[in-house]
Each structure stands twice: as structure tokens, then as C-alpha cells.
Write a protein that binds this DNA or RNA. Sequence first.
DNA 1: CTCTGTTGCTTCGAAGTCGAAGCACTACCG
DNA 2: CGGTAGTGCTTCGACTTCGAAGCAACAGAG
Lengths: 194, 194
Amino acid sequence: MREVTGPLLDIGDEAPNPQQLGAYFTLMEAVSLLQHQVEQQLRAEGDLSSVQFQILTSLAAANGRLTMTQLADGVVYSRSGLTYQAGLLERAGLITRGPNPEDERATLVTISEKGLALVNRILPGHIKVVRRLLLEPMSDDDLHHLGDIMTRVRDHMRAQPPRSAAPRKRSPRSDSPPRATATTDTAGGGEASE
Amino acid sequence: MREVTGPLLDIGDEAPNPQQLGAYFTLMEAVSLLQHQVEQQLRAEGDLSSVQFQILTSLAAANGRLTMTQLADGVVYSRSGLTYQAGLLERAGLITRGPNPEDERATLVTISEKGLALVNRILPGHIKVVRRLLLEPMSDDDLHHLGDIMTRVRDHMRAQPPRSAAPRKRSPRSDSPPRATATTDTAGGGEASE
DNA sequence: CTCTGTTGCTTCGAAGTCGAAGCACTACCG
DNA sequence: CGGTAGTGCTTCGACTTCGAAGCAACAGAG
């Protein structure tokens, strides 16, 4: 044991100022809370997990069809995990899986009418939660700034090499599927244009 | 199938403008990517999961000791999951669990010297990753704005009632409805700011 | 054409995660 | 005191998640 009077944490030479660490920790905590609430909402309203919802919305945003890889890339998820979830969604009749005519080894995932209907049924509630928890305490200026910052950060991360080199070979996810995920406007193509 | 030309997603009446949705989706994606990278880093450098790291840093930031509930609340994590992780950390000699003299049913978790040393050993690398991925593409102004926004958002969420009123001690006839999240508001574990 | 390397997806085993139920202790009320 | 409600933590069972290994299909060189 140790009789402590000062901080136990010893930040090294890289020491960012407290503001930086504070922003980071607060960001992570807020997002954690938001994710948790969203999860509850989706489960209650449509019996979907957050990942399943993301899969369905990604498909819908991509005009209904994507390969497994495109899907996994957009959702930031392991391939095997995606296979598992796709199995559940297929069993529930929300998507279908079929061969890709252009590449026989790929699996083409297609959202069904039922899946589309489900997404459109629970989307308003989802948006309501996001609105209530995230958007409400933000001004227009905040929103603009946040969107701007996170877009830059995300692009920066996407561009970063996987660090410490992959154990074998790494797929250069640089220019292959250009924004297929349409993450920035997953639901944005709508008539909501103001 | 369906020959689509327009968007498949139909945002309801609550339609936020595309900018709002875009900011939300981008935020979630960026954080996802960051979490993933951080996870890799912690695993490689200290053989810790993100949750374990959060537990240790929460303890360190709280002067070394916290109850399980305070810990779970600070980490946004299920109680049972925390019990599991605490078991692992204890077996690894990074923390110890003992009775709380003030409340016999509570478990007081204490970080060990070894745990503290580990945190201080991997913290610089952790910070480096955050710096490289998150902080790098941000200006001082961005940082200030982000910290400000997320603090407001987090406090807003913490203040929000869990939607489906939790069985607080005020219910004379508790039907015990399916409660969602922990309503506890133990604001004990702060962040490691400074 | 065939050989070899690469890519896309799934299967498999191990580990992590959660909510519900259960146990132990505290607080309140008569 | 004794009884009941409330709180703190752990156990339990079911599900999810991931990485490694495996299988099938493309791609390039010879």
C-alpha cells in the first residue's frame, strides 16, 4: 500500500495537456452512454442489436446490396462476427445472401422488403433518441464544428496505416471501395434536404 | 427485389437535417475506429483489454480505491461483467478486493503497486495512440470546442432519466418493470484530467 | 494450362458480455 | 426486537465476439 497525496497517474513525456486528455475521456464516456441508450431503444422497438441495425442501414443506404467485405468495412466489425450476424438476420428474413455474379467467391447481401420495412419502422425512434441525447444540448454551431472535426478525424484514421505492420499481408483499404459505406450520409439522401 | 432510384431510407417526421445525421454517424464511426486501435495497442503493450485499462485508470484517478458500483458506473459497464474482469485483474495481481469497513456488503477494490506500475508503463503508449489518431488532426480550437461539447452532452445524458422509470426507492408498489440501465449517479470516478 | 499467391467468406474454439436470479447485509417501520 | 424493503455484489446460463484455421474462387507468371 501507499500513502498517496499526489496523483497516482504519471503521464510520460508525451504528456498532452489536461484539456486534451479531458476531451478524450469525456468523448469516450459520452459515446459509451449514447451507444448504451441506443442499444436499449433498438432492442425495445425492433428487437435488433446495434450491429444488426447498422448492417441494415448500411445496406439500405447502398441501394440494398453489398458484399460481406464492404459491409464489414463500413461497420468496423470482424468478418466472422458479421457472418454470425448475417446468419441471424437471414434467419429472421430481413436479408438474403446470394452469389455475386461478378465474383463467385463473394457473397452478395441484399436487404429484403421486410428488412427495409423494419428499418423504416424503427428509424424514427432511433433518431428521436439521438436527437434527445446528443443533438439537444448542441447548438447549430456546435453541430457544424463537431461534424467537421469528426469527419477530419475519421478520414485521418482511415488513411493511417495499420501501424506495426500486419503479421502477414494487409489489404490496402485505401482506394478499393470508395465510400461504399456512405457513412457520412447513411440516411442522408432523403428529402430531408433543408 | 426492387429497382430503386431514390433513397430506400425514409426518415420520419422527426427528420433532422442531413448535417445532424452526418455528424452523428461520423462521430460513431470515428470513435469505433479509435476504440479498435486503442484495443490493439493496450493488448500489445500490456496485455490488457480496454475495459481492464479503464478499470485500472479509474482506480488510479480515484486515489487507488473504489467500490464495485462506483467502478461500474464510471466505466459504463454491467455489474456482472465488472465482477468477471475484477476476477481476472485480481488473479493477475493488479488489484485486490476487500471488505468495505463502512458498508459490509460492498466490496472495496484497490489497485496494487503492480497494477499502478503497469498503468504507468502503458499509459504513454496509450496516449501516443490517442494523440496520433485523434488529436493530430485537430487544432487547439477544435479541441476546446470538442471538449466543451462533449462535456455538455455527457452531463446532459447523465441527467436524463432512463426513460422507463427505474424502481427507485419511491415506489410504494414496485411492479419491477424491465429496467434498462443503472440509474445510480455515483459521480465518484472522475477522469484522469491532470 | 497449371502452379502459386491472394482474396472472400465461413467454421471453430475460446473468451467476453449481459440480464436474471440469488445471497448477504443495511435501513426503515411498527 | 422482528419484518420487509432496498442495496451491493456474485453466480449462472445464454448469447455474442474475435482470431485462427480452413475452403473455394480469382489472378498472374511461366
